[in-house]
Amino acid sequence: MSESTGGIEMEEDMSGTVKKFAFINRKAPYGTIYALESLEVVLISAAFDQDVSLVFADDGVYQLKKGQATKAVGMKNFSPTYRALEGYDIEKLYVEKESMEARGLTADDLIVDVEVLDAAEMAALLEEQDVVLSF
């Protein structure tokens, strides 16, 4: 990500406050900008040392699909960013089983290691979160 995301300075002292943030990604990676701009928030939240989880559901599972070739549509391929998340200590990636199966995908089709949860398990995971952002 090369875009400017400045303004991460804290206005008041909240050091030590760690909340559970979940980012739910529900849209295909290209076609709309949601996936790309969601990643930008995710990276910023890492700078705030929060407990971050990423959830991929519905068409959002396509964001992790191997073999994205974006040249013909003139878009920047941001797949490598998902691989880089580990470097930001973002290691909790969850994919909804039903969404993946409905699209004929398995965990082997994905560019990163994920934990596959069924809808009920996903609901339990989200129940534990303090802040849920859906893109």
């Binding site: 303004g7 206005e11 406050t17 930008e40 928030v41 802040v131 952002l133």
Partner: peptide
């Protein structure tokens, strides 16, 4: 106009963060 950090910050200090979209 400010940065994305302002969104994360609001999530940290609010009781609820509500998304409209």
């Amino acid at each position: 106009i400010s940065g994305l950090g302002q969104l994360v910050e609001s999530g940290i200090r609010s009781d609820r963060l509500v998304t409209f979209g």
